[in-house]
Amino acid sequence: MSSDSSRLRQLAVSESGFVFDPLTGHTFTVNAAGLAVLSGLKAGLDVDAIAASLGASFEVEGGEDLRRDVDDFVLRLREHGLVK
């Protein structure tokens, strides 16, 4: 896991899912699962632990590949320059 949690800790995140990056001035919207992943990353958890926490805090049907979803989300954060 190469995410740099200090960069993520700078983000202003509202409960409604509005995210402001004070370094670039960019703003984003994240959904509830995205918020959960962000807070997991900020806390320094690894992908497996975050995937497990998603499974615990959301009602999942069973077919989802939570790990792949988290990986994809981290990839998006990287494209947005929010993690290295």
Partner: peptide, 14 residues
């Protein structure tokens, strides 16, 4: 009851 899962998504405002 916990909310229904949907894939984590982040959308940058254009």
């Amino acid at each position: 009851m916990s909310p229904r899962y949907e894939r984590p998504v982040i959308v940058r405002h254009a």
